[in-house]
Measured scan of single mutants.
Amino acid sequence: EDYYQILGVPRNASQKEIKKAYYQLAKKYHPDTNKDDPKAKEKFSQLAEAYEVLSDEVKRKQYDA
């Protein structure tokens, strides 16, 4: 799945936009606030993985290549 789609940001998003999108979605899908939703944990880990790659310039360049 596309990391940009997961975070809901365009491919040319700035680091600030990526961070903002991640924090909004992380708050929304955090397992502690969605105890009754088994998919929230999965969504949250996808968000974390996408953010880890896109927030790191080197990893992001490799991902975009």
Score class of each variant (00 low, 15 high):
47 L>H: 02
20 K>E: 13
46 Q>F: 09
59 K>I: 04
32 D>V: 10
65 A>S: 12
6 I>E: 03
9 V>P: 00
22 Y>T: 01
17 E>N: 07
4 Y>M: 00
54 L>Q: 00
36 D>Y: 15
5 Q>H: 12
47 L>T: 05
31 P>K: 09
54 L>T: 01
17 E>P: 01
30 H>G: 07
60 R>Q: 02
15 Q>L: 15
14 S>T: 11
11 R>L: 06
35 K>T: 12
28 K>A: 13
47 L>P: 00
23 Y>H: 13
58 V>T: 10
58 V>F: 12
53 V>M: 05
54 L>C: 02
6 I>V: 12
58 V>I: 11
20 K>Q: 11
38 P>Q: 09
41 K>H: 13
48 A>W: 12
23 Y>S: 13
63 Y>R: 01
17 E>V: 13
14 S>H: 09
18 I>C: 02
38 P>N: 10
61 K>M: 08
8 G>A: 07
39 K>E: 15
57 E>S: 09
64 D>I: 02
2 D>Q: 05
39 K>L: 14
51 Y>K: 02
56 D>H: 04
48 A>F: 14
65 A>T: 11
58 V>N: 14
14 S>V: 05
4 Y>K: 00
15 Q>D: 11
42 E>G: 04
5 Q>D: 10
30 H>T: 06
20 K>D: 15
27 K>P: 06
52 E>K: 09
35 K>C: 08
24 Q>G: 11
63 Y>V: 02
45 S>M: 15
61 K>W: 06
51 Y>C: 03
20 K>R: 07
11 R>N: 08
50 A>E: 00
37 D>V: 03
61 K>R: 10
65 A>C: 09
46 Q>R: 13
62 Q>Y: 08
37 D>I: 04
32 D>A: 09
29 Y>G: 03
22 Y>K: 01
53 V>K: 02
24 Q>A: 14
41 K>Q: 15
21 A>N: 07
17 E>G: 05
44 F>A: 06
62 Q>S: 12
46 Q>Y: 08
44 F>H: 05
56 D>F: 01
8 G>E: 10
46 Q>A: 12
10 P>N: 10
54 L>I: 05
22 Y>V: 02
43 K>S: 05
55 S>A: 09
38 P>L: 10
26 A>L: 11
64 D>E: 04
35 K>S: 13
33 T>Q: 13
29 Y>A: 04
55 S>P: 00
9 V>M: 04
22 Y>C: 02
13 A>D: 00
24 Q>K: 12
57 E>F: 05
43 K>R: 09
